[in-house]
């Protein structure tokens, strides 16, 4: 099935993300993941519903064009240091990601699906993507890579939401996409301010406030 293939690709992008050392490439992979997700409803054979086609266009537009644009704007000013600089090594990140995926499969096994559901892979893949987002958020130092982590986390949730795509009201879907976009927009602005204030976007500088 085409949708299963896309989901397998999405899980593969998770592993690529945690093993990538350069910020630009990491952003690219996250964008590819977003576009794959955006196209998934078509692969699920839902292309006949007008509102789903509209949503596919909106999702691909936001995840494939607007968000990369915001990232480019944020990276333009930062020339010196393009390394991801994780707190833990890439091998360790990969092992964590694999463990996370295993955990996701276990968790998904405890949640029953509707009888005859065609979405057997959706729940484990979604939870695995979510955990990958967490790994990126926690183990990467750059403010920008944390935003990528947030984006991946949202991708995982979006994947889960696709199981309900036929029922979900348009208003809610639009709201979620819009919030994602505005969220990353605002984070981009704050990153700019961080870069100006600290001359770097390493979040280790953001450690002045504590008890």
């Amino acid at each position: 099935m085409l949708s299963d293939l896309l989901i397998a690709l999405i899980v593969l992008t998770n592993f690529t993300l945690v093993a990538t050392a350069r910020i630009n490439k990491m952003i690219q992979v996250a964008v590819i993941q977003g576009v794959l997700l955006g196209l998934l409803p078509l692969a699920m054979g839902l292309g006949r519903h007008l509102h789903i086609v509209l949503m596919v266009i909106a999702a691909v537009g936001v995840k494939g064009w607007l968000i990369p644009y915001l990232f480019r704007r944020a990276t333009r000013k930062i020339k010196i240091d393009r390394e991801v600089s994780p707190y833990i090594g890439f091998t360790a990140s990969l092992v964590l990601c694999a463990l996370g995926t295993g955990l996701a499969v276990l968790l998904a096994g405890n949640l029953p699906l509707a009888p005859g559901s065609q979405f057997k892979l959706f729940v484990p893949a979604s939870l695995s993507t979510l955990l990958t987002g967490f790994i990126l958020l926690i183990t990467r130092r750059k403010a920008l890579t944390q935003v990528v982590g947030y984006l991946v986390l949202e991708n995982g949730i979006y994947l889960f939401g696709l199981m309900l795509v036929e029922d979900m009201p348009m208003l809610v879907e639009t709201g979620i996409l819009l919030d994602l976009f505005v969220g990353i927009f605002v984070m981009g602005i704050v990153i700019n301010h961080i870069t100006v204030a600290f001359d770097s976007m390493d979040t280790r500088h953001l450690a002045e406030l504590k008890d």
């Binding site: 958020l137 403010a143 944390q146 947030y150 969220g183 605002v186 984070m187 704050v190 301010h193 961080i194 204030a197 979040t203 500088h205 953001l206 450690a207 002045e208 406030l209």
Partner: peptide, 10 residues
């Protein structure tokens, strides 16, 4: 305040 804002947002 930038540190506080970043933590709040993320």
């Amino acid at each position: 305040s930038i540190e506080a804002t970043w933590k709040y947002l993320i």
